[in-house]
Write a protein that binds this DNA or RNA. Structure first.
Length: 590
DNA sequence: CTAGGGTTAG
């Protein structure tokens, strides 16, 4: 029939094409048919092609989305129904930016959205946290007269609850003439998300017909706030449980660091799904138990993309980048034949960065992503910022940083750290200030980055300010942060002050802290404190001789040759000349 | 509408 279309006259072609498009077609056939449609100038039939395209199994999302983008770029806007299907398709597969862009394009070409269009576009805005977009659509709801449509109103509610504007959500909810179970559940979810458990409970208790989702949402509210007693009580009270109910409990125990109870729930649930397994793997990832995670992974008979992603992440997060890469390779093998997605690649880029395999990392960026039609997003950009800054291509990293749609804490931190290790300390400080100005909460990693920058340029006063500001964000400095401070203060020659800081630590200083003091004492030839610091280093890490050499240097620097010689001999006897790793140390050795 | 997988240090 395809051949007939190719040869036939225009009048017979239309019904044939229409019939064909209702059948099952392979991707190749569809492409051919699409070509013929264009040859015959039947552009109005493109909508059918698009709708056919998005009915393919979602495994092919990357390819389908790519083809869709091509069609949408080169043709005139599809009809409302088709455009809406496209928006929904993007939405259901995580392409929220594209969903929203399609909605905007549709408006631009003068098409009036339907209630379905509006509901889908709102969902995209909700998931993107695009507050302006959502509010704009809210206005259109009024001007297009969609008020009173339960689906639209519930979508609006979903938008406001997702962006945590519970005041507006509550107002909308109160004014709704008709509410369905989803509207109620959205309200519970909204209060749970904004951390207001009492109000969530209030909605939950006044809700007329609770379904399993209502119960699960409430249980997850308690488990998110680490109230596992209450979560368990509700879980037991539920009239009906589905796998999600169990998964929520497992996640709660994992978040409360109770991996044993999580394990118990996992073992006793009547039906496990992939998400149960992924949740457990995440728990093991957090606990650094790579072996148990792998065991669970191996036991799954059906392994999908997400499961692979969770295991690859487990390896990458626990500093097993080689294993991450080999599992990535395994998933691409014909016998498993699973497509990687953005998440896979973000993790793999991180693994490349850890392995210093910059060629593989930039090949993924420059070539592989295009090959498999994966479009850039902010998580990928962040992973690449780290990769490029670790390989010294700080300019590339800065470019990617500029391209970010939303700069989150991870992106800022990666950039700050990237600047710090590439001799752009002042830029690092600038980026840090910019982050503070945009009211993004720094975390412990951010402070490691900025203190590293400050340590390179020895800005003592600014470092103190920075260090002291940690408590404004409820952050407790870790021994690593103290090490950095000791290094900064000590390198400036203020050794007693550095020692005082160590003594003020609320926890036991680890070897890094004493090592920083010892190195500072070596620089400034302070025997008294150097001996104290060295003593602690020996106690904490007797097998390393680097500390002995440092102390010997101190003796030598003040002319106490005998002691220096004796110490060096002892170091030599031990046979080990290993020096503890430290960026500062490396500079000293150069 | 509920459950899962991504990116930053050491």
């Amino acid at each position: 029939m395809l051949a007939e279309v190719a040869s036939g006259g225009a009048s017979e072609v239309v019904p044939k094409v229409t019939t064909l498009l209702k059948r099952f077609l392979t991707a190749k056939q569809l492409k051919q048919l699409h070509g013929l449609i264009l040859v015959h100038g039947l552009n109005h039939l493109e909508g059918l092609v698009i709708r056919h395209l998005i009915s393919f199994p979602s495994d092919y999302y990357q390819g389908i989305a790519h083809y869709l983008r091509l069609i949408l770029r080169h043709s005139k806007q599809p009809d409302v129904f088709t455009a809406t299907s496209v928006i929904r398709y993007f939405c259901n597969h995580g392409g929220f930016h594209e969903a929203f862009a399609q909605y905007v394009d549709m408006q631009r070409s003068g098409l009036l959205p339907s209630s379905f269009t509006v509901a889908s576009a709102l969902k995209a805005c909700a998931r993107l946290g695009n507050e302006n977009g959502g509010m704009m659509i809210h206005c259109q709801v009024h001007s297009h007269g969609f008020c009173g449509d339960v689906y639209v109103e519930t979508a609006l509610l979903g938008f406001y609850t997702k962006v945590k504007d519970m005041e507006t959500a509550q107002k909308l909810f109160d004014e709704m003439s008709e509410r369905n179970v989803v509207s109620w559940n959205s309200m519970i979810d909204g209060y749970v998300r904004s951390g207001n458990i009492p109000l969530a409970e209030k909605v939950f208790s006044t809700m007329p017909n609770k379904d399993t989702v209502s119960w699960n949402t409430m249980v997850s509210g308690h488990s998110k706030t680490r109230n596992m007693e209450k979560a368990l009580r509700l879980f037991q009270e539920m009239p009906e449980r589905n796998p999600t109910s169990w998964n929520v409990m497992i996640r709660g125990y994992i978040d409360s660091d109770n991996i044993d109870l999580a394990q118990n729930f996992y073992n006793s649930m009547p039906q496990r799904n992939t998400i149960s397994c992924i949740t457990m793997i995440t728990g093991y990832t957090k606990h650094g138990d790579v072996e148990s995670a792998r065991e669970l992974f191996n036991n799954m008979s059906q392994k999908d993309q997400s499961l692979y992603n969770s295991m690859i992440t487990c390896y990458s997060k626990n500093s097993h980048p080689k294993e991450a890469l080999s599992l990535f390779d395994e998933m691409l093998q014909p016998k498993s034949n699973i497509q990687p997605d953005k998440m896979t690649l973000a993790t793999i880029i991180s693994a490349c960065s850890q392995l210093q395999n910059f060629n593989l990392g930039s090949w993924i960026h420059e070539s592989y992503m295009k090959q498999i039609n994966i479009t850039m997003d902010d998580h990928l950009r962040t992973a690449l910022i780290d990769l490029y800054s670790k390989s010294g291509s700080i300019t590339k990293a800065e470019e990617l940083f500029k391209e970010l749609h939303k700069k989150d804490i991870v992106a800022y931190t990666a950039m700050i750290l990237g600047c710090s290790i590439n001799g752009k300390e002042h830029i690092a400080i600038q980026v840090f200030d910019e982050m503070m100005a945009s009211k993004i909460r720094p975390n412990l990693v951010t402070y490691s980055g900025i203190l590293t920058a400050l340590s390179h340029i020895g800005m003592v006063k600014k470092s103190y300010q920075c260090f002291d500001s940690m408590k404004n964000f409820g952050l407790e400095p870790t021994p690593d942060h103290y090490s950095l401070m000791v290094e900064i203060i000590g390198r400036n020659g203020r050794l007693d002050e550095a020692y005082d800081l160590i003594k003020s630590m609320p926890m036991e200083p680890h070897v890094g802290v004493w090592g920083a003091l010892l190195r500072a004492c070596a620089t400034h030839g302070n025997v008294e404190l150097g001996e104290i610091a060295a003593k602690h280093c020996f106690e904490l890490e007797s097998e390393s001789s680097g500390y002995g050499s440092l102390l010997a240097n101190i003796y030598a620097s003040v002319g106490r040759w005998e002691e220096a010689k004796r110490l060096r001999e002892r170091v030599h006897e031990k046979g080990s000349v290993k020096v503890p790793g430290s960026s500062w140390m490396d500079h000293q050795l150069e």
